[in-house]
């Protein structure tokens, strides 16, 4: 009995932590949750991926509810990019049932490493007041409490954003992630979207991406009900806190946190899957 209570508390805490960091960085949470479930709770990889997808929807919905209302999430840009993301997710969802768990883990680590190296190599991060809008259909506007300014920005290189979103959808379905690890740096580095708007928009989008894949997992009975529900309750609480925290942090700090977190997890997962050590 005590063991069950401890395990439940652990799953709730893991969910809350991944929800907090996921909502803060626009990653969805699967990126943190899947390693925690596999390494910390002994959950098989495919079950962890299914639970991770459901947790991504929880992170997205809880964070998106606040971010969309405050205008930080660019609802219009998100909707345009969702076309590419859903196409990628549907393709990846069907392929995921035919791939071995070890290869999923290895691919997961490689994607994380590539993203973190790209962000670490970047020396300068623009702050809120350095963005300008041009009155376009996809322009974004929100109030940034950290800088006390109204941030207005234009979206550049839409085809790059669409290509990144297609790849993100594919990765999302294969690995149980929200795809934010690709979308956030893609939108921020190549498309002129401020880091906070990129994380919030990614956070909103990943719910749709994950829903497309999670539906497949649910239909084939691959979603572990009690496990996913326990984790999700933690995620819902954590992601609300993550959004509140995000509004108080500077652009620079959010970008640096994003790079550090992805690099750490990447190295951890490489060690686990290449050498079999915990």
């Amino acid at each position: 009995m005590a063991e069950t209570i401890l395990r439940t508390a652990g799953l709730l805490a893991a969910g809350a932590a991944s929800g907090l960091v996921g909502a803060l960085l626009g990653l969805g949470g699967g990126i943190f949750l899947i390693p925690a479930l596999v390494l910390g709770f002994g959950v098989p990889m495919h079950s962890a991926v299914a639970a991770g997808l459901v947790a991504v929807i929880a992170t997205s919905s809880a964070g998106g509810a606040q971010n969309a209302e405050h205008g930080v999430a660019n609802v219009r840009l998100g909707m345009v990019l969702e076309v590419a993301t859903v196409l990628g997710a549907l393709g990846g969802g069907f392929l995921a049932q035919r791939l071995a768990a070890d290869w999923l883990g290895l691919f997961f680590a490689a994607v994380l490493l590539a993203v973190s190296v790209t962000l670490c190599m970047r020396r300068r991060v623009r702050e809120a007041h350095e963005y300008h809008g041009s009155g376009g259909l996809l322009d974004g506007r929100y109030h940034d409490p950290a800088s006390g300014r109204e941030v207005v920005y234009s979206v550049r290189r839409l085809p790059v954003a669409l290509a990144t979103s297609l790849a993100a959808g594919f990765v999302s379905a294969l690995l149980g992630l929200g795809g934010g690890i690709l979308k956030v740096p893609g939108l921020h580095l190549f498309c002129g979207v401020p880091m906070k708007a990129a994380t919030a928009t990614s956070n909103l989008m990943i719910g749709v991406t994950a829903a497309a894949s999670a539906t497949i997992y649910l239909a084939v009975g691959a979603v572990p009900g009690a496990l996913a529900a326990t984790v999700c309750l933690g995620v819902l609480a954590g992601s609300r806190a993550g959004v509140r925290l995000s509004r108080r942090l500077s652009e620079r700090l959010v970008a640096r946190l994003f790079a550090v977190v992805t690099l750490t997890i990447s190295l951890f997962m490489f060690r686990r899957f290449l050498h079999g050590s915990p």
Partner: peptide
């Protein structure tokens, strides 16, 4: 277990309804 699964199904349906 059925209620928990139903809750998960509602959660998965939420982004569809949002779109």
């Amino acid at each position: 277990e059925a209620l928990a699964l139903l809750g998960i199904a509602v959660l998965i349906a939420t982004p569809y309804v949002r779109v």
